[in-house]
Design a protein around this nucleic acid. Structure first.
Lengths: 105, 105
DNA sequence: CGCATCCTTAACCATATGGTTCTGAAACCA
DNA sequence: TGGTTTCAGAACCATATGGTTAAGGATGCG
């Protein structure tokens, strides 16, 4: 599943879509608007994101809303965190980062 | 550059290579050993990892050592952390996670 | 020098990926 | 009913990806 998540994140369009979805659910047309790309292309990206578990989609009702599901991102971070001891950054600064994360929820 | 990092991480073989490199530098033959895969295939994976900045390679001397460079992983975490407010996990548990990270360096 | 070792490069192949256009289904509107 | 809107699916195409085998360059050793 990590494979699917990282593969989904490897595409800039898909990362932009996820970023957009932080502002709230959106229709396919809304998600497609910023890109010089056909609507079916965006639909394909949404399918990839859905299969990676990164979005869910509400039943169509003339429009079809995409909703951010960030849980797989937590799993990805879990994997990445195992490498924190190998970052060049000092542990003092790592502590600062972690403090920051706790302070600005 | 995030694109390259996530693309590199999308392959299970490459993730396993990175994991192996946490135990120390290794030759191509050592890295190839665990996989039922030709050695040139592993060389290709190493090239991908190198281009993503995830490994560096010492000058050959009959052997060629790969060395883990975890800095890009920190950048990847930086991107992912922007989604922490959308995790299903409660913030209390997030705090626990962050505490754990600070305690077991 | 001659040869073995370690690894890269080249050529090739099958499949995956990211895009297109065209078609069509499902729900609303008049 | 019929048209419009919103989106997905199919067919297609070019290129990228992940693997193979075969060949060759660089280093160390007898």
């Amino acid at each position: 599943m990590l494979t699917g998540v990282f593969a989904a994140l490897a595409d800039p369009t898909r990362r932009a879509i996820l970023t957009r979805l932080k502002d709230g659910d959106a229709t396919v047309a809304e998600l497609a608007a910023p890109f010089s790309m056909s609507q079916p292309a965006v639909s394909k990206h949404l399918k990839v994101l859905e299969q990676a578990g990164l979005i869910s989609r509400s039943q169509r009702a003339t429009a079809r809303l995409s909703h951010l599901e960030a849980e797989p991102l937590r799993e990805a971070i879990g994997w990445l965190m195992d490498y924190r001891a190998y970052w060049a950054e000092s542990f003092d600064r790592l502590d600062d980062l972690l403090d920051d994360l706790k302070e600005q929820p």
